[in-house]
């Protein structure tokens, strides 16, 4: 076939087709099925009257609110801490110094480590029967290993946040570093020569310039940490559990009636993270560049 006869528009459409197919069928298809089930609508097993009972039971359950607060705390704290540390790391790494390429390599190394592996590492190191607890006991800093502060399965989700921070710093850092390198240092030179101090130059010039990169990276991190299941499942306390863990529990409940509730919860998680990201983007844009 002579491709040259096709209009540009047709060509673009054909090229996008495979990707569009996956998005439409898998993503929207899954979303539609989930949505239908969350409304108790499932003609296959005779449920043809949609209702809101699953949503009502989600929103009347106290555990849901506690889980939401915990999940928000995990996502927000991890995003803020890893963004700040990543910007700091990028500021150091963009300078030239001896051994820079080695440090750079080490900095990015854990991008290749799966979350799950990292979480198990955390468990080995930080649990009350883990390496640090034993070391502390060995050196007489604590009487029993179980006196070690609870950093995993703890109510403040410190273990989960540590794991996310450890994993996301290089992710945000690499994006911010690339951003800084493409911007160069001339804008900062201008600011310095116009009388800005080092801090003012960072606050009023570099930060606004790298802001789009930081924003998109941190939105990705927030959305991921808000909706991820495996880390809170491994490192989190039993009650309250993070929202995705709660949803999965409902889904695998022996009582099949809990499934619509699981679906409703998943839909709520998606909506909540969309709403929070919207407000985050709006607020921070005004704050940094305004």
């Amino acid at each position: 076939m002579e491709v040259g006869h096709l209009s540009d528009r047709t060509k673009i459409f054909l090229l996008l087709l495979p990707a569009m197919f996956i998005i439409v069928v898998l993503f929207f298809g899954g979303l539609m099925i989930g949505l239908m089930r969350s409304f108790n609508y499932m003609p296959v097993i005779g449920l043809t009257e949609p209702d809101l009972s699953a949503y009502i039971s989600v929103f009347t359950d106290r555990e849901f609110y506690l889980s939401f607060l915990l999940t928000f705390h995990i996502a927000f704290t991890s995003t803020v801490i890893s963004s700040i540390l990543a910007i700091g790391a990028a500021l150091l790494l963009r300078r030239s110094f001896v051994g820079r390429s080695i440090v750079n390599f080490l900095f990015q190394l854990n991008l290749t480590v799966p979350h799950l592996v990292g979480a198990i590492g955390m468990l080995y190191l930080f649990s009350q029967s883990g390496s640090f607890a034993r070391l502390a006991h060995e050196f007489g800093m604590i009487a029993r290993p179980s006196d070690f502060p609870a950093l995993v399965f703890d109510p403040y989700a410190i273990g989960i946040i540590l794991q996310y921070v450890w994993k996301e710093i290089p992710f945000i850092g690499v994006i911010v570093l690339a951003n800084m390198q493409s911007i160069g240092e001339d804008y900062e030179s201008v600011a310095r020569s116009l009388g800005a101090s080092k801090w003012q130059t960072f606050r009023y010039v570099l930060l606004p310039l790298i802001f789009p990169g930081v924003l998109s990276a941190s939105v990705m991190v927030f959305a991921f940490t808000f909706g991820a299941y495996e880390i809170p499942a491994i490192l989190g306390a039993n009650f309250p559990a993070a929202l995705p863990v709660l949803a999965y529990r409902k889904y695998t409940d022996v009582d099949l009636a809990a499934r619509p509730e699981a679906m409703a919860m998943a839909i709520v998680i998606a909506l909540l993270s969309a709403v929070m990201i919207y407000f985050y983007v709006r607020y921070s844009r005004r704050r940094i560049r305004g």
């Binding site: 030179s189 310095r192 020569s193 116009l194 009388g195 009023y204």
Partner: peptide
């Protein structure tokens, strides 16, 4: 910032996210 020397670069390097007035007023704001 203490030398009283200001440099104007070849490619101007106006801060892209600021208005013209904010660009001009930058040194005074600092």
């Amino acid at each position: 910032e203490d030398r009283g020397v200001v440099m104007v670069f070849q490619n101007y390097l106006l801060f892209p996210y600021m208005s013209v007035a904010d660009n001009v007023g930058f040194g005074l704001k600092m």
